[in-house]
Computed example of a mutant assay.
Amino acid sequence: MSKLLSCRYNMDTNRVEARFEDGTTLAINCTAIEDEYGNTPAQRAELDWLLYNKPLEYAQMVLSGEMERYLSLGCEHGRLED
C-alpha cells in the first residue's frame, strides 16, 4: 500500500475520504467503524473526536487495525475541554 497523504471527514456521507501517494482514494464508512468499535458512550465520543479533529490518524488506525487497541487505552479526547 502506498503512503497515505491526506484525509478529510465528509459529514454528508459520514465517511473519511483518504488519498494515497499513488492517486488511489478510499472512503471509510464511519457508521460501520462506530458499530464495530463504539461499544460505550466514551468510545463513541472518542471516535467522533478523531473524525472531527484528526481524520488522518483515524484512517491510519482503521487501516492498520489499531482502532480497538487505541480505544482500549481509555483516551479521553471526546470530553469537553476547559
Results as ranks from 00 to 15, higher is better:
residue 54 K to V: 03
residue 61 M to R: 11
residue 51 L to G: 06
residue 22 D to V: 05
residue 65 G to T: 13
residue 47 L to W: 14
residue 52 Y to C: 05
residue 66 E to R: 10
residue 64 S to L: 10
residue 35 D to W: 02
residue 50 L to V: 12
residue 58 Y to C: 00
residue 69 R to L: 09
residue 60 Q to F: 00
residue 46 E to I: 15
residue 71 L to F: 12
residue 62 V to Q: 04
residue 59 A to M: 10
residue 38 G to T: 02
residue 52 Y to V: 04
residue 48 D to I: 07
residue 62 V to Y: 02
residue 29 N to G: 01
residue 47 L to F: 10
residue 47 L to R: 09
residue 65 G to N: 11
residue 25 T to E: 15
residue 55 P to H: 13
residue 67 M to Q: 07
residue 69 R to F: 12
residue 53 N to F: 02
residue 52 Y to R: 04
residue 60 Q to K: 09
residue 68 E to Q: 12
residue 31 T to R: 09
residue 39 N to P: 00
residue 60 Q to M: 13
residue 25 T to R: 10
residue 42 A to H: 10
residue 45 A to R: 15
residue 49 W to G: 04
residue 22 D to E: 01
residue 35 D to S: 05
residue 50 L to N: 04
residue 65 G to M: 09
residue 57 E to G: 14
residue 69 R to V: 04
residue 70 Y to S: 03
residue 45 A to F: 13
residue 37 Y to M: 02
residue 45 A to M: 11
residue 75 C to H: 08
residue 29 N to H: 08
residue 54 K to M: 11
residue 47 L to G: 11
residue 25 T to V: 12
residue 42 A to Q: 11
residue 69 R to M: 02
residue 24 T to C: 14
residue 65 G to V: 08
residue 66 E to V: 06
residue 39 N to R: 06
residue 59 A to R: 06
residue 27 A to S: 15
residue 64 S to Y: 10
residue 65 G to Y: 13
residue 68 E to N: 12
residue 49 W to Q: 06
residue 34 E to D: 07
residue 36 E to A: 05
residue 30 C to N: 12
residue 65 G to H: 09
residue 72 S to K: 12
residue 57 E to L: 07
residue 44 R to K: 15
residue 31 T to K: 08
residue 60 Q to D: 07
residue 74 G to M: 12
residue 35 D to N: 09
residue 31 T to A: 06
residue 61 M to N: 02
residue 38 G to F: 07
residue 50 L to W: 14
residue 73 L to I: 09
residue 74 G to I: 12
residue 65 G to W: 12
residue 47 L to E: 05
residue 69 R to H: 04
residue 45 A to W: 15
residue 28 I to S: 03
residue 67 M to I: 08
residue 55 P to T: 01
residue 62 V to R: 01
residue 41 P to S: 13
residue 36 E to Q: 14
residue 50 L to H: 06
residue 31 T to E: 05
residue 71 L to A: 02
residue 66 E to N: 14
residue 34 E to T: 10
residue 51 L to N: 02
residue 46 E to T: 13
residue 54 K to W: 09
residue 69 R to T: 09
residue 70 Y to I: 04
residue 43 Q to N: 03
residue 71 L to S: 03
residue 40 T to C: 06
residue 63 L to Q: 04
residue 40 T to Q: 07
residue 46 E to Q: 14
residue 54 K to N: 08
residue 51 L to K: 15
residue 43 Q to G: 00
residue 63 L to H: 00
residue 67 M to T: 13
residue 62 V to W: 03
residue 72 S to H: 09
residue 24 T to F: 08
residue 52 Y to Q: 01
residue 22 D to W: 12
residue 30 C to D: 05
residue 46 E to L: 14
residue 47 L to N: 01
residue 36 E to C: 00
residue 23 G to D: 11
residue 52 Y to L: 10
residue 68 E to R: 07
